[in-house]
Design a protein around this nucleic acid. Sequence first.
DNA 1: CGGGTTTGACCAGCGC
DNA 2: GCGCTGGTCAAACCCG
Length: 320
Amino acid sequence: MSNHEKKGSYHYDPFDCNPQGFNRLGFNFFQDNPPMYNPPTPSENLQAFDPTSYMSFTDCLHGSMDYSSLSRAFDMSCSSEVITPTTEESSKKTATVVRESTAMTTSENNNPSTPNSSVSSSSNEAAGDEDSGNNKKDKQQKGQDDGDEKSKKVNKPKKEKKQREPRFAFLTKSEIDHLEDGYRWRKYGQKAVKNSPYPRSYYRCTSQKCTVKKRVERSYQDPTIVITTYEGQHNHHCPATLRGNAAGMLPPSLLASASMGSSFPQELLSHLLPSTNNSLQGVPSSMYYQNLAPQQQLGQVPDYGLLQDLVPSFIHKQQP
DNA sequence: CGGGTTTGACCAGCGC
DNA sequence: GCGCTGGTCAAACCCG
């Protein structure tokens, strides 16, 4: 039973809700290297966007690939909401950016491009996340301790607004929702998305002390497109490099990047991008965009899913 | 039995 | 203040 079966019909459209806005939201990943695979009809409107309003994906990936540099490449303040997949969400959260940007810019300025800087800022935020999580647990625990099943309101000291990790949304053409990316994820929630028949799934990295999360949802307008939003950065090695299955076909240089973890996914992407023309020369280009049967991705050929997840079609940029 | 998934409930933030 | 929505929790359930 899927959620969208029991939920009513929605009319969520991450692209069409602001068609002009999407020009500013996304940048053309294929600008430098036209795709071997022509997206089907629903994606044609993507191609119709004004190219001048896109930023080349590879432009963003040149240079050091941490969140800060990406943020600069996106010409945005290094706020915690740098990228969101929906204009609705963007418009709603733009207001929060002003308040949340301070701490982020601090870490960014102190450590412009080193992965460790990202890790440190990430860990700080992670600590905040954990604290908030603990607070939540404590709160719930306290509510139960104080008695009476579930106390609706708990007196809690007013704490500053929770800082969120920078987010990066990827659009990936795939038939499966949860794509292999080399890391292990645990699903901790699923929600129906407003105006969308497709639910949004919430995943958390299973590694201890790693607070990276990702949200996976399917585009309403083009159900073949999976929107994966990463939040936070891994502070551990990529399990795939240890298992050697999903990453088995990746070049050593890429595996080295993957194993660093700290700058995932940017560094991976910088290696995987077709335009970089370095890592995947031996890989059939159709692999980038090929639609795969679920059993292929989940079964004998997990690498395809990995590649698909690591080679996004677009990255959404939040319109300031 | 351990780890992952499902799912209803809860909570916080935001807009009206 | 109220309602809506996104995000999270956690018990129940599933599966290898």
